[in-house]
Amino acid sequence: MSRIISLDDLRQIAADFIRAGGLAVAPVPFDNDRVFFQYIDEEGAGKIVLSGWLKAANTIKDFFFPRHEKLFSYERIHNDVVLADAPEFGKPQLLFGCRPCEAASLPILDKVFGWDYQDRFYQSRRRMTTVVTVACHKSDDDCFCSSVGGSPENTEGSDAILYNLADGTFEVRPVTERGEQLFEGKTSESTKTGKACPPPPVRFDASKCKTWMDGHFDSPFWNEHALRCVGCGACTYLCPTCHCFDIVDEGSYAKGNRVKNWDFCQSALFTLHASGHNPRPDQGARQRQRLMHKFSIYPDKFGKILCTGCGNCTRHCPTVLGVKPFLEAIEEQED
């Protein structure tokens, strides 16, 4: 026996969640056929689309680690500086309809934001959020979850996973207690069971790639393969696991905010020293950094790959680069 729910009832769950004072994030169509994860209102719940698209044009990390977040405000009063902490994220949040390769980024980010420093900004959002994933019905050329230990029905990071039964209903499989609670009394029994698409072919051997990278830090390989990279932030900002940020003050001498903004390692400025020296002087060095952070440095430290194989970095790259072409090329290296 399985448990099923209609799309309308799913939308109703989101609407009820908002009515009860929570925030709901869900995929909503925009023009140009793009789907975006967005905060929706009760009415917007009717626009949630859970099929017909593979990947959204933004990432779910924006709702845990926003692209722009205030840390505190400052104000000079006479000769004193008065600081006021940004309030803690205090509302329950429902994240609806992400893919398994997006939800799987959350346990990965948990490690970074809860390791030596406990990042209360990330952690409060994470604590307050229920994640409902939809198993994939298809994969594309850029997907490679199966090469990094994931799958089209991976439940890591999810509180519940849905399977599209393609008749206007979804099979519900709660993963955690929180997921169970969300769907309690909302599903009906059925004999139908859902199925995810077959996993995309394994495209490279991640541990072999790690060994090669560790031994080829100075290889000309990096610059040769990075030539078509234009050094933008599309790959990192669309990556659910990239987590670098910059801290800047915005405002005047008299008052303003200290804010945390996303930053990207593919920019030449990312490592530029005040002296003018740049330890990552070219795009090859910058791409090597991104690849090694994901497939060597983070795994050494946390025992996991810093990549879920979502393929966003290739899919959204203006020159179709991202990590996958590098790893496939490394796989083909002979020495």
């Binding site: 924006d62 050094g231 933008c232 669309l238 800047v248 915005e250 903004n261 920019s267 400025l269």
Partner: peptide, 30 residues
């Protein structure tokens, strides 16, 4: 998202240091 893919793909946005990258002080909010 301020990824600057527009700028980096533009043949005429060739400045080594874009005014949008200046953050001390910031000319425009980053």
């Amino acid at each position: 998202v301020r990824c600057y893919a527009c700028r980096q793909s533009c043949p005429l946005c060739y400045c080594n240091r874009c005014v949008a990258d200046k953050n001390r002080p910031a000319r425009i909010p980053t």
